[in-house]
Design a protein around this nucleic acid. Structure first.
Lengths: 221, 221
DNA sequence: CCAAAAGTGTTGATCCTACACCCATGT
DNA sequence: ACATGGGTGTAGGATCAACACTTTTGG
């Protein structure tokens, strides 16, 4: 289909993805190194004809980092006319979550490197990507309090309650910490009147009492 | 600035605005009648070079309906390739609130009519605008529970507590209704540890005991 | 005096915070 | 036996739903 009728200006449209994961209990963000100018940036790229924005974001993540994620959702737009000095580019920003820091790095044609960075120590990113990353983290924190189920996206299919609690603490901060452990467990039991998690029946062993393994409560979905 | 470097496809980008107000205690949505095809639609239109998306949404609202609003924020994107049969158009959807149904109708070149519709009885709208409107209403309900301050955008500068409560009931449904009045008032007092509203000192008279007038608590902003 | 809407007191249930305590395993 | 993390009981305070009640105006 061609732009047969359009007397209107068409801007460039790109998706940018803030992909978070936990590594050693700390929140990390995925960045790619642009072959263009050698700068670190959020993964992402220009939209192609015939795809939706969601598809574009998923495609770019796959191309630039060889990665597919269980959570990928739009959270904000960035459209200031001068945010890209070359021409006006609308950035559709996505928040994504990956369960483990293990990813097979894959550099495609536009990208010479891929890496995780601790969110408290990000490099200087291209364009307004530092702001996008900060907004994404703030959005993630709010989402965590509103829809705690997304915590599961950070974890494997089964996990201990301590791991779940550490996930909440790493992202939503001390909200879930003060005299907890007891209270966190009570909260998961009461959650939604139905329980946030269910026991799998399996145990994880270690140099201490074995821990019960849990999975997301399927009745929540 | 011209698109000197862009080997990329550029889609058409438009903003669409779901503007809500209360009339006789019921939630209403603003629609415009397109001169093009005679269909009702959400107000909105194509982005112009040099403006941001926020500016575009505000401009279209002003042009098509002669209206400026206290609340106007992005809430979702719509980008399915076939949502507009003419060419692929990305719609950036905004949620807006206007305090009273009194607006000076203004038909510009693209629009032959403007009107409020009860949200429970919307006409068939152009493109996917019925879905956008439904999503906007759902978003509004959630926002109301998360950030009750936005209720003020539906009201004039001062109001009675009953009016405030009716606003919540119209939008968030029975959540604020069951045996309330007493409980609603207690909730506003406790809100944020500081109170949702402050007394203005004025009264509103009627065929009953006069009601105290209130204003948004300025300490909340 | 009565209709109508404004506005208040209070109780019992529920939820949450905080702290103290016990349990099962590997070394 | 002891270090380590897993896992529970419960008292006291805060919060909230529910119901019954009093107050002030206009007509």
């Amino acid at each position: 289909m061609t732009d047969f009728f359009s007397p209107y200006w068409h801007p460039a449209v790109a998706t940018d993805v803030a992909l978070f994961t936990l590594r050693q209990g700390e929140l990390h963000l995925l960045c790619v190194k642009r072959r263009d100018d050698g700068k670190w940036a959020l993964p992402g790229g220009f939209m192609q004809q015939g795809e939706s924005l969601d598809q574009c974001a998923a495609r770019e993540l796959k191309e630039e980092a060889g990665i597919e994620v269980p959570y990928l959702n739009h959270f904000a737009n960035y459209s200031e006319p001068d945010r890209d000095p070359r021409e006006q580019v609308i950035s559709i920003a996505y928040l994504a979550i990956h369960p483990s820091g293990k990813l097979r790095l894959k550099a495609d044609t536009d990208v010479s490197d891929v890496n995780w960075f601790d969110v408290r120590d990000l490099p200087s990113l291209a364009f307004d990507h530092n702001k996008i990353a900060a907004d994404a983290q703030k959005h993630l924190t709010g989402l965590m309090e509103r829809k705690p189920e997304i915590a599961f996206a950070f974890l494997p299919a089964s996990f201990t309650l301590s791991e779940l609690q550490q996930t909440f603490e790493a992202i939503a901060g001390d909200k879930y910490a003060p005299h907890n452990k007891r209270n966190f467990r009570l909260w998961t039991e009461r959650f939604g009147g139905i329980g946030l998690v269910v026991e799998t029946g399996d145990l994880r062993t270690g140099a201490h009492r074995p821990a019960k393994l849990y999975a997301p409560n399927p009745k929540l979905f």
